[in-house]
Design a protein around this nucleic acid. Structure first.
Lengths: 200, 200
DNA sequence: ACCTTGGTGATAGTGACTACCAAGTGGGGA
DNA sequence: TCCCCACTTGGTAGTCACTATCACCAAGGT
């Protein structure tokens, strides 16, 4: 069939998505999330409302959509299996934060501030951790086969992700001045104990 | 003015709220959350849609509304300040779970299953932890005055709440057969390693 | 040259939610 | 006891997110 043929179409599709999202975030920042309708976004982007809904199923996705989720999950699955799970996940989260903040922070910060200040966005953003948590548990597949081990892994993963979210909130409040990786490290230490050498 | 005069009116108000919520959950369980409109709920409860919206600002509140939040926050504030925060919060959560499951579980379980299976409800339920987290940090007021201490407390609180949520999901999946307090204890041990028998 | 596929657009809905305004009712002060 | 008023409720008409269904067009492979 058509597996890798339609790279050009994929490129155009990705480009229109990026363009629509850029207009959306710009309008949301300027007029507020609730003060901006999807029709406004469509008009600003020069497309029909239908097109916006095709690329972003919900209005919230206009802010929340990114490709960072699987990246983090893969990084966690690649950590050595010997260490305790919270340390493995924590390390992967800190490394991901370093990668993420290496580029342009402004767009990321704008989106993050919207996510934190808007209840609907904050809720969905937290709920996305559910997917990441499942990906983590699945990525451990062979290590945690019985239900109890999977449950324990899920508990550890959710705790780490919640801690990261707290650090993200703090980072956004500080306008990105503090290093995100350091914030996550500090938050992880506060939650799980700050002894770096040995599992407690 | 009218401070404590209207106890009778408060009673009636609470009663109609309880009645509307009971009808709502019953319909949601039977026909599904998305398959039930607020008008359906209003009709089943014998009131106008307006009245439903007055008592429950959003459709989600028909499932999520309860009075357990402040109860937990108070219990945490009452824990001895000497112990590490995750242990204090964890203990309070386990005790709250015991209190909560002492009564009738069926209504609680039905609501919980709805919250877990319905994306919009799951998101809001997680977001409610944000309020509880803030209440915990505020309840510690005198103990954590500088911003860094508050940040660390927030990180610990969010981690504990996320772990509790994982236990709640497992509890609902087990139809409440396992003891909720035991599940929370196990999940806390998996995340924080403060299992008295064997730190991992 | 077909014609299949995928992106786009217009129309007409449904349903959650929000003013705004009208009416009844119970409770407390005169 | 009676009346006033706050509280609760109901109706109407709207906005807005989102969906279903139609048709159109522009590639891209055969």
């Amino acid at each position: 069939m058509n597996e890798r043929h339609s790279t050009l179409r994929d490129q155009r599709r990705a480009e229109t998505q990026r363009m629509i999202q850029a207009h959306a975030v710009r309008l949301f920042v300027r007029r507020g999330y609730d003060g901006t309708t999807v029709n406004d976004v469509a008009a600003a982007a020069g497309v029909s409302p239908m097109t916006v809904y095709r690329h972003f199923p919900t209005k919230e996705d206009l802010v929340l959509a990114d490709q960072n989720g699987p990246l983090v999950a893969d990084r966690i699955a690649a950590t050595p299996a010997g260490q305790p799970l919270v340390r493995r996940i924590g390390t992967a989260l800190v490394e991901s934060a370093r990668t993420l903040t290496a580029g342009d922070d402004r767009f990321l910060l704008a989106r993050l501030r919207l996510m934190i200040s808007t209840p609907a966005l904050r809720a969905r953003h937290l709920d996305n951790h559910h997917l990441l948590q499942q990906a983590i548990v699945d990525g451990l597949g062979d290590e945690a086969t019985d239900p109890d081990a999977a449950f324990r892994a899920a508990a550890a993963a959710s705790a780490c992700l919640a801690v990261m979210h707290t650090a993200l909130v703090r980072w956004a409040q500080d306008d990105g001045r503090t290093d995100l990786a350091d914030l996550i490290t500090m938050a992880l230490a506060a939650a799980f104990g700050d002894d770096p050498s040995r599992p407690r």
